[in-house]
Design a protein around this nucleic acid. Structure first.
Lengths: 353, 353
DNA sequence: TTGAAAGCGCTAACAT
DNA sequence: ATGTTAGCGCTTTCAA
């Protein structure tokens, strides 16, 4: 059954349709666009010609003359992170139900990749931009975008576009206070390697703030080699030391569920009982967080609402239905207490020097 | 800091650049395209003008005249499935490193959604199509595509495009034989609800084949309400009955890791010990399959290689570097034995009537 | 109700 | 080495 791909012929244009139906290009255009005031007979004969030729609209040409497109560019840090994947899916769904296509650009949280990605998107004249995360301080991105098109930040924030997000700072503070209320005093923050995105910054801020309010010291950890070592205050340390060494941490607030699950896995492999020996709280409420074997305590974001609101905001800006200053939608987060957090171990302070 | 978005002015064109630099449009075009034979002085002054105006190429216009684009359309069944998300990420990466943008279309394994998605992609004149999964018998899709552009199937197969995939049938048979070799005789197949995609069909085929070879009866289960009920031979049954009732199943082959993890979760909640009471094998080797708490035995696909080969095949077809009959790349799969499979319980046959 | 003509921003012969 | 010109496939006045 393996037939050779046939040579591809140029697709038919409205001109071909016009000739075949004996009408003019503009009339054909009128029926394609469902313009009013076309003789039903004419419409039918044109449609017959369209069917016969297998004509399919060339959106590129339309876009050139109309000077607008119906595709939105979505900048995402890491599609392999289930949270972003879920968000991407929702966004694609809502966009497509509103007549918009989506072009993704996965940045790996690398500013250069991000910048060329944005440049490409703009060169393609996407109608709007959506950031699901952004790298660096966004000054570069801002410069490239240069106010050329509407942009909305979902799940992250900046002052040069509309924002649809949860208050990361407050949510992180709530997560941290949850741990503090359970009696934990040495609470670490686990996040991505050196590079830090906006949400990360805010969450670390909320964490540090809550600790400061309680008179506690922060300990910010960033993965060095994923399941083995982290860098703490500039020095590389085995995760095991952090979790089991002298002055060990009894609780962890992870910047997202993926990190939380990694920490959980480290704890398992180190023979630590969670939550008895170690409490872990994540962020995002990824689908897998709720299975019995994981049961991750986490901060849930209303993913679908975030996506819908973001798409609506962006499409309204695109259509000019929304004008004026940037708006910030702040949605509610929920702390979902499952099986990875519990009272701090009582021998907690004995081990600390 | 919330400044109102400024009114968006039309972006500068090569015409503006030409005027500012005192050169002609074609010269400007020449420097943009890095055409040879441009006076260095000229080039510089043009570039100065470009910088001053903040000119950015309009790819839409270029695409219209060149009659080709550098975006490939990717049709994916469910972005929220980590396997597809990982694949999507790899594909995006390889494509972008080869100068191609990617437009995704998430179909929810719904044929209508898929069809309009493909239609949109074609109207946007994507240079090629990539299917990460497709719904239905693909006759509809084939008709819409109508040989207009190159298409490659990754991770699934069809006879009207190039194929880059693992042999799903053989892999499923291997997975099933693994279970049979462990002494299991009542082995169920778990898959998506009513709708079935290509990979699903093949895997079920391999499963049924291996069982038949061993003189065993297949039991095909499709989720009805996700974590609670399945439909077996047309009737709705609680999962718990399948796993713990009379004549219960002692092993499960899941069409993908997501289903496998769901089954694992059901088993956990039903108080079953895995793998002591129930063996489970999945398919895909999703990132989470390898954490200690899951330790899922599964069939691994070489994701990155699949993605790279698929992108290369497609881009070569697009550039005409690859001609002639469709090729089928069949990559090797690996059975990774972890902690969810073990010998069948000895009391196995006593319960069966 | 339909058609003719101009033009969107760019590229690619072809002249110069 | 640079400029002139003619489109790419469509939409959109404006006339007929």
């Amino acid at each position: 059954m393996t037939l050779p791909p046939s040579p591809r012929h140029k697709p038919p244009t409205i001109h071909d349709v016009a000739r075949l139906s004996g009408k003019s290009k503009s009339t054909v255009s009128n029926v394609i666009r469902n313009a009013p005031g076309v003789n039903p007979q004419t419409r039918e004969s044109v449609q017959a010609a369209i069917a016969e030729l297998g004509y399919q609209l060339n959106i590129v040409a339309r876009q050139l003359v109309q000077q607008r497109s119906a595709v939105i560019g979505v900048v995402v840090g890491d599609l392999a992170n289930p949270f972003y994947a879920e968000m991407a899916k929702f966004i694609e769904n809502f966009a497509s139900s509103r007549g918009f296509q989506v072009m993704f650009c996965n940045t790996q949280v690398d500013e250069d990749v991000e910048l060329t990605g944005i440049r490409n998107l703009i060169e393609h004249r996407v109608a709007g931009l959506m950031f699901l995360a952004y790298a660096g301080d966004a000054a570069g991105a801002r410069h490239v975008v240069a106010d050329r098109l509407p942009v909305v930040f979902v799940t992250c924030a900046a002052d040069w576009g509309d924002v649809v997000a949860v208050d990361d700072f407050a949510a992180a503070a709530a997560a941290t206070r949850h741990l503090i209320a359970l009696g934990h005093r040495r609470i670490a923050y686990f996040a991505d390697s050196v590079r830090e995105e906006k949400a990360d910054t805010d969450r670390r801020g909320g964490y540090a703030g809550a600790l400061a309010d309680a008179g506690l010291e922060p300990l910010v950890l960033r993965w060095h080699r994923k399941p083995h070592t982290v860098v703490a205050e500039g020095v590389i340390v085995p995760v095991e030391t952090i979790l089991t060494g002298v002055g060990r941490v009894t609780a962890v607030f992870a910047a997202n569920d993926l990190h939380a699950i990694d920490v959980l896995d480290c704890a398992d492999r180190a023979g630590l009982r969670v939550p008895h020996d170690l409490s872990i709280i994540g962020f995002d409420d990824v689908a897998l967080a709720r299975i019995a074997r994981i049961g991750l305590t986490t901060i849930a974001q209303p993913k679908e609402m975030l996506a819908e609101l973001a798409v609506d905001t962006l499409t309204q800006r695109i259509k000019g239905e929304l004008q004026g200053g940037f708006i910030r939608h702040s949605l509610d987060f929920t702390l979902i207490s499952r099986a990875t957090t519990a009272k701090a171990p009582i021998d907690d302070d004995r081990h600390s020097a």
